[in-house]
Design a protein around this nucleic acid. Structure first.
Lengths: 230, 230
DNA sequence: TTTTAAACATAACAAATGTTATGTTTTTAC
DNA sequence: GTAAAAACATAACATTTGTTATGTTTAAAA
């Protein structure tokens, strides 16, 4: 049985980890450095793929526009994560958009260069395709949570997931720093209803909030919501 | 802009369509025929992949177990659909389970045979990987619907999707024939709440129900729910 | 066919969530 | 640093959805 966190984590920060030191060097030599401003897009739905990205520093949200123009956030990438490769393997357009949540430093590998890397390092293709399969399972898990859990439980799960993901990249206890609107767009509710849940968790002592940053104070109480509520 | 239906359809019935007549023949010669009883599993989460399946006749549900043991249905396959290949490309275990909704006739291609086919027909691998990319986008769309739409809208959308999918495979006007529990597990609610929505649609003249089969009588009225409701 | 179990329809009530509104705090832009 | 805009907190009320309960219909088993 996989751990709780890996069921909800793309693990796209580990894509180059299976390589030898020499291979890694080849990959990192192929990268060029980019700076991306907060609020701008790394790529967008229906756009033509240009290459893949690795985040050196910062956070980015992967979003899909709904019918009513509202955006659904289905993943938040952090430092070390590699993204943008689905569309390259499929030789098709991007299926979703990715927006910088803060000023980003990223490494970029252009499409042609990436395909050359895949040729020279055969293991790489399998690693990527394997990860796409894993990500597929992650999305299925996200669907199950959204469809089956009430708001408190959805928030609890996502706070745990985000806290874990941000801790890996920043330091432990760094907290969850997202706008209320973004967090609401992750768990599928309005900022107002989100606020009510946050207040409930605060009163209960599960979390503390400073400015907009959320700190988890009692993981256990949040985990308890997973199994119970409908 | 993609059509409404293709945004929610895996299109896994078209995987062999890009092949030449000769290539198709090679593929179909590699298949062996199986009969699968209603309620039994084609494969299950964490199981070791054995090959891929194509449904010759019948329907099957792709499910993921939640925490509380409840099942989430995130796709329903019908006649012609090919499934079970994600795990093979990733060389990992199945990420989800697939259960027959009625007695099935399926074609099976064993793992080794499938890999041989990929070698002898190079285009095939790209077609499959491209489709996995497409399916990724479908799951993201499903997430957006579950997170953003109220129960009426979720039901309306899924009735349209299922009606479209079943019509393609059976004949037009064949209706939607699922247990209330399965349909509830698609849209993320209880059978009781589902019943209330169905009654509302019936009273409104959007659908008719005979036994448990649902017939759409006014597509337009269901489509109107897409853009409006939150 | 008869019996038994499963599935379905519906209603009343409880609980959760959405919405609107108002005032405050924090961030951004100049 | 100051002004303007955005983000946030909270409450009251409306609406939606969940839950429990009961009787009926349909499908499965004997």
């Amino acid at each position: 049985m996989k751990s709780f966190y890996s069921r909800f984590d793309f693990q796209s920060n580990l894509l180059f980890e299976a390589l030898t030191t020499a291979e890694k060097k080849t990959v990192y030599n192929a990268m060029e450095s980019l700076s991306i401003k907060k609020g701008s897009l790394l790529f967008y739905e229906e756009g033509i793929p240009t290459g893949i990205f690795q985040i050196k520093k910062g956070k980015a949200k992967k979003i899909k526009k709904g019918f009513s123009g509202s955006e659904q956030i289905f993943y938040i990438y952090t430092t070390g994560d590699v993204l943008g490769y689905h569309a390259l393997f499929g030789e098709e357009r991007y299926q979703d958009s990715c927006e910088a949540l803060e000023d980003l430093e990223v490494n970029f590998i252009a499409k042609d260069v990436f395909f050359q890397l895949l040729k020279s390092i055969p293991r790489l293709q399998q690693t990527f395709i394997k990860n796409i399969g894993h990500e597929f399972g992650v999305l299925a898990n996200i669907i199950a949570v959204l469809a089956q859990k009430n708001l408190n439980a959805r928030l609890a799960i996502n706070l745990l997931i985000l806290n874990n993901r941000f801790q890996k990249q920043y330091k432990a206890g760094s907290g969850i720093d997202l706008t209320r609107e973004d967090l609401a767009n992750v768990i599928g509710t309005s900022p107002e209803s989100l606020g009510r849940c946050l207040k409930y968790f605060k009163d209960q002592g599960s979390i503390e909030v400073d400015k907009r940053v959320i700190y988890i104070k009692n993981e256990e109480s949040l985990f308890q919501l997973l199994n119970s509520s409908s």
